[in-house]
Amino acid sequence: MSELLTINGLTKRFGGLTAVNAVSFSVAQGEVVGLLGPNGSGKTTVMNMISGHLPPTGGTIALGDQMISGLAPNRIALKGIGRTFQLVRGLPSLTVAENVIASLAFGRRKLWGEAARKEALQRLDEVGLAHRADQSAQDLTYIDQKRMELARALAAEPEVLLLDEWLAGLNPTELKTGIELIRSIQTRGVTVLMVEHVMDAIRALCGRCVVMNAGRKIADGPTATALSDREVITAYLGDVHA
């Protein structure tokens, strides 16, 4: 397996607080990896550094053999990293289709006009949102906004997709649809790194998990092994249960 995303000694300090402390791991081409950890352990900060939203204080991030750490988010997006946000971020003054076109027009594919519209509708169809294409994005329900955000991220045809708690807040039926959706992304060969708290989804989707606690990596391995790791259980539940 070839490593697609390689993270080495990644560190982020906010003033005196070290949010991410020398974290290293890698994700292979086509893998779906879960990034787990209790709240405040630094998962989202790692995601933000990979997508370029935050510059790292130290360490490196490489996509294939290209160094991407420290680049601006728009440059990183063009290199092939797409993402969704922990708190869903739609573009409220645009229509649903335009939300997707935004990523088609400026991303790696530079589609515009009829071609972009056709492609956007197809992308929306994949997430089950084609019938809302011409509605205003601010009128969507929460789950539909999440779908739209996923369609927007996928439209750029990223090599690596970062999902930040994309399944959070869904009801059981929606969750099932959501898991199917991510699985279909994987079968297309997209590499996925997902921050998630829904354990069923992690077991169903992730072949491997990286677990963080208090800014450090504490486990990295096949999902079942990582989740039964002693330190992981301590981190989540405290000492008594271990």
């Binding site: 997508s51 370029g52 997006a77 946000f85 573009l91 027009a105 790696r108």
Partner: peptide
């Protein structure tokens, strides 16, 4: 395209940057 880019920026600069703008 630049008009759409401006609208996206006006809505959310973080999303705009992540779209490649």
């Amino acid at each position: 395209r630049i008009g759409l880019a401006l609208k996206v920026i006006g809505d959310d600069e973080v999303v705009a940057a992540h779209c490649g703008i």
